[in-house]
Amino acid sequence: MNETTTSIDTAGIQKILSVLPHRYPFLLIDKIVDIRGDEFGIGIKNVTANEPQFMGHFPGNPIMPGVLMIEGMAQTGGVMALTSVGGTGKLVFFMTIDKAKFRKPVTPGDRIEYHMTKIAKKRNIWFYRGEAKVDGKLVAEAELSAMLADA
């Protein structure tokens, strides 16, 4: 095992902004903790009532759209993959979603943890298993892949 996979690191919002092109309202992670190279990491999303999706999903009963939780998983994995190759001069492209399941609703006030574990890496493509958890309970899960390409 190399040093990058054995060290535990954190990526705050400034680091995330330096590697991902996403910006508000489509940046769906606030920080990443427990990063172990591109092998494992936990993305954090603090869900707040003033986010634009809650105006229509659903008025009077705001629920975090499942597709945005999948995107939060993808962004977490993207930061991990980009950081593992130096984070500059590359773009990350979301490629596949498999085995997606939504278990419980997520509402404003919840703190989502995106637990991302690398399944495989083939050339410039990373494959991850993601589990979204709130208060330790599984709320969504999926397998995702993404490709890194030159900017």
Score class of each variant (00 low, 15 high):
101 K>E: 14
98 D>N: 15
124 N>R: 08
70 I>E: 06
116 M>I: 10
22 H>A: 06
115 H>C: 14
13 I>R: 07
67 V>L: 14
30 D>G: 09
100 A>N: 07
55 M>T: 10
67 V>T: 12
101 K>N: 15
6 T>M: 10
132 A>E: 10
29 I>T: 03
113 E>Q: 10
54 F>V: 06
72 G>P: 01
119 I>E: 14
63 I>V: 15
20 L>I: 08
64 M>A: 05
18 S>C: 06
56 G>P: 09
2 N>G: 15
86 G>Y: 03
93 F>L: 15
11 A>W: 09
54 F>E: 02
9 D>T: 13
96 T>M: 11
64 M>G: 01
37 G>I: 07
97 I>Q: 12
69 M>E: 07
31 K>F: 00
42 I>F: 00
37 G>W: 04
135 D>C: 09
92 V>A: 15
28 L>P: 00
115 H>D: 08
31 K>R: 15
64 M>D: 02
134 V>Q: 00
38 D>P: 03
15 K>V: 10
5 T>V: 12
84 S>V: 08
132 A>D: 02
72 G>K: 01
88 T>R: 13
80 M>P: 00
26 F>M: 14
100 A>Q: 11
94 F>C: 09
8 I>G: 03
107 T>N: 11
6 T>D: 08
91 L>I: 14
33 V>R: 08
62 P>T: 03
77 G>Y: 01
40 F>Q: 06
4 T>L: 14
142 A>Y: 02
26 F>L: 14
7 S>V: 11
49 A>C: 04
137 K>C: 05
118 K>M: 15
77 G>A: 07
67 V>K: 12
95 M>K: 13
30 D>Q: 08
58 F>V: 05
104 K>Y: 05
85 V>Q: 09
17 L>K: 14
98 D>M: 12
70 I>C: 05
73 M>D: 02
138 L>Y: 08
99 K>A: 13
65 P>N: 08
49 A>H: 02
49 A>K: 05
24 Y>W: 10
92 V>N: 04
50 N>F: 03
11 A>N: 11
90 K>C: 00
123 R>Q: 10
11 A>Q: 09
82 L>Y: 04
85 V>I: 08
62 P>L: 05
59 P>W: 07
93 F>K: 15
81 A>P: 04
118 K>P: 07
26 F>S: 06
56 G>K: 13
83 T>K: 12
75 Q>T: 05
78 G>M: 04
60 G>N: 10
5 T>R: 13
78 G>Q: 01
90 K>G: 04
24 Y>D: 12
67 V>Q: 13
31 K>I: 10
134 V>Y: 01
126 W>N: 06
25 P>M: 10
32 I>R: 00
66 G>D: 06
20 L>A: 03
83 T>Y: 07
111 R>Q: 15
143 E>M: 09
29 I>A: 06
80 M>H: 02
97 I>V: 15
21 P>S: 11
4 T>W: 12
115 H>G: 09
125 I>W: 08
